[in-house]
């Protein structure tokens, strides 16, 4: 029997959940599923989140990911890039970034693959990852969970992991926090004694063995791992009718 929701929709609710409890901070989300998820969180359990339109305006209303509004666009503030930097260095932000590579300590790479001096594949570059990860909470989104993404060692560290944060000392790393990692297979955190990647839940229809086999290092799996929650009926209505009517989420997520 079909469960009545797709994997992409489970992922969307799971990414929305990373914003629980954030309150009045700027929520930034890169990738299709995170963009839907942030809007879903704002429309349901985290109405105080701040959100930009991707240009320079803070939006009080919640348009679809394609920019369509139900009513008139409501601008509640101006946030050019310069103010984004100020705001993120002040800590009032939670970002969800895509990881091209992630290791067990949460060291992140989306800069390039291979030797940085002459990379096999130049990707995004450092962008804001160094400043983000040392200044405010960060979560990661991985649409295609594989040993190529979850690697023993990342080629370049663009986002700070827990081992490197520990090496910096408590004072320098006091704002560092990796909240959650959500992939197409499950939800993860770093809530172990040595701060390494731990399986929090597996998505409906995914076996724990499948997650382990697709992770390029020893994943911490403790006790009975629950299933990731299903999206509610109300959430599905919002995702399908209001936030992503074109169904872009299904193209991003590997099943």
């Amino acid at each position: 029997m079909s469960p009545g929701f797709t994997r992409a929709e489970v992922c969307t609710a799971a990414v929305a959940d990373v914003f629980r409890g954030d309150g009045e901070v700027l929520a930034s989300a890169f990738g299709t599923v995170p963009a839907i998820a942030l809007r879903l969180a704002k429309l349901t359990f985290e109405p105080d989140l701040l959100m930009t339109d991707g240009v320079a305006f803070l939006r009080a209303d919640v348009p679809s990911i394609d920019g369509d509004s139900e009513g008139e666009a409501v601008v509640e503030g101006w946030l050019p890039f310069r103010s984004v930097f100020d705001l993120l260095w002040s800590g009032r932000r939670h970002v969800v970034m895509v990881a091209s590579q992630l290791d067990r300590h949460g060291n992140h790479n989306f800069a390039c693959i291979g030797d940085h001096r002459k990379p096999r594949a130049q990707l995004l570059g450092m962008r804001g990852a160094p400043g983000n990860t040392i200044n405010h909470p960060t979560s990661y989104w991985v649409p295609s969970h594989s040993p190529k993404v979850f690697v023993e060692k990342v080629d370049v560290v663009s986002g700070v992991g827990y081992d490197r944060a520990a090496a910096l000392g408590e004072r320098s790393a006091r704002f560092h926090e990796i909240r959650k990692v959500v992939s197409n297979l499950g939800v993860f955190d770093f809530a172990t004694s040595d701060r390494t990647l731990r399986l929090v839940s597996v998505h409906p229809g995914v076996a724990i063995d499948e997650v382990v086999a697709n992770t390029g290092f020893e994943l911490v799996v403790e006790g009975d791992v629950p299933e990731t929650r299903a999206p509610t009926h109300a959430e599905l209505e919002l995702i399908r009718k209001r936030l992503d009517p074109a169904g872009s989420r299904e193209k991003e997520v590997k099943v």
């Binding site: 800069a111 940085h116 400043g131 040392i134 370049v156 663009s158 490197r164 910096l168 790393a173």
Partner: peptide
Amino acid sequence: PTRAGLGTDVLSI
């Protein structure tokens, strides 16, 4: 001064 870059390969690059 800034905190950005600490703990990353920005320093080794």
